[in-house]
Design a protein around this nucleic acid. Structure first.
Ligand SMILES: [Mn+2]
Ligand SMILES: [Mn+2]
Ligand SMILES: [Zn+2]
Ligand SMILES: [Zn+2]
Lengths: 133, 133
DNA sequence: ATTATTATTGCAACTTGGTTGCATTATGAC
DNA sequence: GTCATAATGCAACCAAGTTGCAATAATAAT
């Protein structure tokens, strides 16, 4: 965490652990309830999460119901220069999975000549996740 | 509008006109300010928009700052059975364009064998739109 | 055309997810 | 250990969207 320019605090250690243990992106509420005893102010959690995002440790995903989910960056993104990955939204459990899915080559082609200059892209899939069928 | 099972009202006519005239998806606020004199209750506008969505006349797109934009369905979707289209988000003007971009074949392949059952998908591009460069 | 049925509208109050200001406390450089 | 600076907790706040309900307008029935 030092290497990201962040002071090591109690709150950050707890939240980082929780994010590391999760297969899916987590909401503010998800994280709060996973904190034993709930002993963490909600504002502190908001600020902890955005410190992770600013430091480049995590990223956030907007959901359909106007909330943010947070997840650590994928290992692929750490090592190589992969910026964009896909997300899978489960219709049943509402979970959002980060998928190390390379979509680069898909991007430019279709609207190449239309005056849109593409810099990045997100591919979002919906359906049923492995643990829901 | 009758054909969609909706009563023809003043509010709906106004909002439908505004949506038809726009190249990009519009926010609640965008639409309110486009209404001459502002003479439309904010709740009525919310309900007008969701009546359009429920009736199958329009659709909504979630933005990064957790609000909804609304746009009429593309003509392609009306005629054929095209369900999903792509969106282009301009970094500069923040506008969101609906793109008649067929992404069907891209969907299934990469995570086919992973236990995810894909039902629909959205492809979101970011960059600079034609009127911003 | 008049009336009756039913959906739509407007207003006020409310909910929810998240932010801001500020005094207190903890971290890490020295 | 001392000190500068950043993180925390608390209360108040904000903005997008929702709900309840009485008044009103659109259409169907007569
Ligand atoms: Mn992700
Ligand atoms: Mn669209
Ligand atoms: Zn699931
Ligand atoms: Zn633009």
């Amino acid at each position: 965490m030092h290497q990201y320019g962040l002071k090591v605090t109690n709150a950050r250690i707890k939240v980082l652990r929780i994010l590391m243990q999760s297969q899916v992106a987590l909401s503010h509420g998800d994280i709060l309830t996973r904190i034993h005893g709930n002993e963490l102010d909600k504002v502190t959690l908001y600020r902890t999460l955005s410190s992770f995002v600013n430091a480049g440790l995590a990223h956030k995903v907007a959901t359909e119901d106007r909330t943010w989910l947070h997840a650590l960056h994928l290992p692929e993104e750490r090592n190589e220069g992969v910026e964009d990955h896909a997300h899978f939204v489960c219709d049943t459990c509402e979970c959002i999975y980060c998928l190390p899915l390379v979509t680069e080559d898909m991007a430019a082609i279709p609207i190449k000549e239309s005056g849109f200059q593409i810099k990045s892209h997100e591919y979002r899939l919906r359906g049923t996740c492995p643990s829901c069928h």
